[in-house]
C-alpha cells in the first residue's frame, strides 16, 4: 500500500509533468542536458535526488524497482531510496537485475545485460563533462552548441603525456551519436562499453545541478580517445575471489593489517547469482554473498576512494 499522506511517487502531478517533459526532450536529443526545476526531496543532495526525481516521474504501480549503490543493493543509500518508493509508490522491489523493470544506480552499470522494457536511472553529481575545464555555464553551453570539444581531448592528452596513458578512470567522457559529449556519471570506465547499444532506456538525473539527460536504447556511445591511445575498459587483473568471474568489475578489499587483500565483484547480485549457480572463486563459500563478506569485514577494510 502507498502512504496516503503523499501523492503517488511522492512528487505532485505538476512537478512530474515538468520532469516528464524534460525526459522526453532528453530522449529526443541524446546526450544533451535538459534543464529542469529540481525539487526539494526528503533526503540530502548527495543521496541522488536527481535520480530519485527521474525515478519518481517514471514509476508505475506495476514496477519492480532495484536500487544499487556502487553495485551493492544493501548500502544505507540504496536501502533508503528503495524504502522511499515502496512507501510512496507501492512498488515491489528486487535485488535481481533481470527481474527489475526500473533500476536506479549510483556509480555502476549492472554486469547482467539489460533488456527491452527496463529503465536504468543514474544518479549524477556533476552532469557537465566540460565543467572542470570551464566553470561558466554560459561558456560550456556555447561549447556544446558549437561542438567545441577540443579542450576535452587536450585534457585527456595531458594524461597521456604525464602518465603514459589516459588516467581518467571514472566519469570517463563519451560522445553520443556523434554529437554531444556527455558525462556518464562516476561509473568506472570499465562500464563505458555498456552505455552504447544497450537495450534499456538510460536516464540521467542531476538534482543539485538541475539537469536531465538520456541515452535511448541502441544508441551509439563512444568513449573519447586517440588513434594511438585507444580507449581501454580496464579492471583489476584478477578473478572474483568469491564467484570466480573473470569479466566483472572488482572491488579490492583489504582483509587484515598485513595488507592481505581479496577481489570481489562490485555487483553483489551478479556475484551472488553466480555463487548460487555453483561458481566458486579462490575463497568462494557458496552460502556467503560478496556483500555479506564485505559487511563482515567492515571497519578494517580500505575504503574505495570514490565519493559522490
Amino acid at each position: 500500500m502507498t502512504d496516503q499522506a503523499y501523492n503517488f511517487a511522492y512528487l505532485d502531478e505538476q512537478t512530474k509533468r515538468m520532469i516528464r517533459r524534460a525526459i522526453l526532450k532528453g530522449v529526443a536529443v541524446p546526450g544533451y542536458q535538459v534543464p529542469f526545476a529540481s525539487r526539494e526531496m526528503p533526503m540530502p543532495y548527495g543521496w541522488g535526488t536527481g535520480g530519485v526525481q527521474v525515478t519518481a516521474a517514471c514509476l508505475v504501480p506495476e514496477d519492480r524497482l532495484k536500487v544499487i549503490d556502487q553495485g551493492a543493493d544493501d548500502t544505507t543509500n540504496a536501502v533508503s531510496i528503495r524504502k522511499f518508493f515502496q512507501r510512496t509508490a507501492g512498488v515491489e522491489v528486487t535485488e535481481a537485475t533481470a527481474e527489475a523493470t526500473v533500476i536506479q544506480t549510483r556509480h555502476r552499470i549492472p554486469e547482467t545485460a539489460l533488456s527491452e522494457g527496463q529503465i536504468l536511472v543514474y544518479q549524477v553529481p556533476i552532469p557537465e563533462p566540460l565543467r572542470f575545464l570551464e566553470p561558466r555555464e554560459t561558456e560550456t553551453r556555447k561549447m556544446h552548441e558549437l561542438e567545441e570539444y577540443g579542450l576535452m581531448h587536450v585534457k585527456l592528452y595531458e594524461d597521456i603525456a604525464r602518465h603514459g596513458e589516459i588516467a581518467t578512470s571514472y566519469a570517463y567522457p563519451v560522445k553520443v551519436e556523434g554529437r554531444y559529449v556527455m558525462d556518464p556519471s562516476p561509473i568506472p570506465k570499465f562500464d563505458n562499453p555498456k552505455l552504447g547499444g544497450n537495450a534499456a532506456i538510460q536516464l540521467f538525473g542531476a538534482g543539485r545541478e538541475q539537469r536531465i539527460y538520456a541515452v535511448p536504447p541502441y544508441t551509439q556511445v563512444v568513449s573519447l580517445d586517440f588513434d594511438d591511445h585507444p580507449f581501454v575498459a580496464s579492471k583489476a587483473p584478477h578473478d572474483c575471489d568469491l564467484c570466480g568471474a573473470s569479466e566483472s568489475y572488482l572491488d579490492e578489499v583489504i582483509t587484515d593489517d598485513q595488507g592481505s587483500r581479496m577481489y570481489v565483484c562490485s555487483d553483489t547480485d551478479f556475484c551472488a547469482t553466480r555463487q548460487e549457480a555453483g561458481h566458486h572463486g579462490r575463497l568462494g563459500v557458496p552460502q556467503f554473498s560478496s556483500k555479506k563478506i564485505a559487511k563482515s569485514l567492515e571497519g578494517f577494510c580500505a575504503a574505495e576512494g570514490v565519493t559522490e
Binding site: 503517488f8 511517487a9 502531478e13 512530474k16 508505475v60 529503465i119 535511448p216
Partner: peptide, 18 residues
Amino acid sequence: APVQSARAFRALLEAMAR
C-alpha cells in the same frame, strides 16, 4: 490522475525512446 498519468507517461517514454 497520478496512476493513469504515470502509466500513460511510460507508454509515451517507450514510444519516444523506441
